[in-house]
Structures are given as C-alpha cells and as structure tokens.
Nucleic acid binder design. Sequence first.
DNA 1: CCACAAACGTTATTTTATAACATTTTTGGA
DNA 2: TCCAAAAATGTTATAAAATAACGTTTGTGG
Lengths: 141, 141
Amino acid sequence: MADHAHLDGPALTRNQQTVLTALKGADKPLTAYDVLGLPAIRKAGMKAPLTIYRALDKLMDRGLVHRIESLNAFVHCDHGPHDHATGFLICTDCGRTLEVHLESCETHLAGRAREQGFAVDNVRVEMTGRCPECAARAAAS
Amino acid sequence: MADHAHLDGPALTRNQQTVLTALKGADKPLTAYDVLGLPAIRKAGMKAPLTIYRALDKLMDRGLVHRIESLNAFVHCDHGPHDHATGFLICTDCGRTLEVHLESCETHLAGRAREQGFAVDNVRVEMTGRCPECAARAAAS
DNA sequence: CCACAAACGTTATTTTATAACATTTTTGGA
DNA sequence: TCCAAAAATGTTATAAAATAACGTTTGTGG
Ligand SMILES: [Zn+2]
Ligand SMILES: [Zn+2]
Ligand SMILES: [Zn+2]
Ligand SMILES: [Zn+2]
C-alpha cells in the first residue's frame, strides 16, 4: 500500500493511533484517565497515565486532537488540519462539544490584543450552553 | 463607617477578603496553592486548600475574581463588575495577564454558536503571546 | 552494523481539586 | 431576645490530573 500517510511528519505510532481511534469513537471529550480506562486501550497494552499523555501530546502537536481547557479533556479534531483558531461549544447538559471555526473572529480578537501591544500566537475560545438536542429535550419537559 | 459595601450581596467574609487582597497584591494569576503559601494567608489562619477554594468560589460568583482555565489559576478582576464576556491575554514569558472586554466580539461568537442551534450562556477567551514588556526585552537581546 | 533520536515502560511523585462531617457564625423572623 | 435555618468554616482524608526520573526498546540514517 502506498504511503498516503497524513501530510506532515512520520506515520502515527501504534499508541498514538490507538488513542486517536479512541477519541474518534467517543461522542464527547475524554480525560486522559477516561481514555486509560477504555477496554481498547487496555487491550493495546497501555497501562500508565503517562503513556496516554505522551500520545495525546503528539496528537495535539499535529493538530489531530484538541484540549478543552475547562474540562481537562481531549477531543479529536473533526475538521481537517487548520492553523486558524477554533472555538468549542460545550453542552453543560450532555457534555458533548462542537468545534467551530473562527477565522473572522480570530482577526478581531487578535486585533483587540494588538491594541494592548500584545503579540498573540494562540487563541482559545470555549463557550458553554445547551446543545440543540438538550434544549429540545428541556423544552419538552 | 457607613455600609458602602459593594453592590450585591452581603459583605465579604474575612477569608474572602483575605484571598481577594492576596490576588490584588499579586502581579500575575495565582493558583489556589500559590495563595495558600502566602504569608498573609497563613497569618490569617488559613491552612487548608479547601479554605482557599471556598473563598475563590464565592469571589468568582460575585465576579470579583476570574479563573484562567489554561493556567489553573485565579486573578482578581481589574474592571468593575461586568456581565459581558472578557478575554485574557496571557504572556508566555512572564506569566502576567491582561483582561480585555469583548462586548462586540461576544455577540459575534454567540452568533456563531446560534448558527449551530447552540444557546450560549458563557464565553471564555484566552490568548497566549508576548506582553509589550517581554516583547521589548526580547527585541533588545 | 553502528550511532543517534524518538518513543515507550515503569514507578514514584507532584499538583490540583473535592468529599465527608463536625463546628461555628450569621441572619432573619417569632 | 431567642431560636431555627442557612452560610461559612475547620479538619481530615481522598480523588483527579499531570509530570519527573530513569532505564529500555524501537526505528532511522549513514
Ligand atoms: Zn480542529
Ligand atoms: Zn447537550
Ligand atoms: Zn473582569
Ligand atoms: Zn511578559
């Protein structure tokens, strides 16, 4: 099979691939310890928190995984590779998140920073609220 | 002295006042354990992490203190009370932060969320980069 | 084959945050 | 004033999240 590995860098290692697959299979962000507790992870022989954190770090370096700061949790990137900022919508009812691109707003935010003489290199946005499903369920009750 | 306590709610308790003063005196965000380690805190008789966390929770409820998620640290609000979103500029060199108001951008961000059917109730923005002082120092070297 | 770097395994430890439960203080009526 | 409920506090223990330290294995280029 030809090497159509992803754009940058060497192929993912087995641990990295295992963790990425786990995150893709989850319907919400997982903490490192959530990942560690998954059967598929144990079957792959990963037993220590550090093993998970190392894989997550590499996956984040590549932009394949994002960290949700306010949850101490990790989610796979469901957009292609992107270098502009994204934001996360976090449902406080079900815990699911949605990644939204912020090309336009990023410019605005970085501009506000520049007004203060601040040179921004990274923008993080996290918004909590209710997802459509949970809002509908709440309205029905 | 007349009770010109701040607008909402009862006066701050001694613990709350002590912690708030500590944060005001710091030149950068402090973790709960940073606060716990301060002489002024020990002198006030506060010895346990929980004591600090409880005071911080109340101060955050009142909007007098903000939590910087990506630092697990707390900083006093240097604006008056505000109900619109703010963002934080975080210097990766010196660790100092700057709070910026985001009235206009908040509307935009919440709008992006609404496009997805998401009802936002809280917006958090954290931007890392270099503060003016650190940028100048770096340029001089 | 060898030298080097990256990834990994393992154990211990640090850092951050909360649970559980008893006690004290404050506050708002009766 | 007195009392009951609520809020805040003290104390101990524990949970949750992340990293340090060190040696071993694996992969890669020459
Ligand atoms: Zn993404
Ligand atoms: Zn939801
Ligand atoms: Zn503020
Ligand atoms: Zn700085």
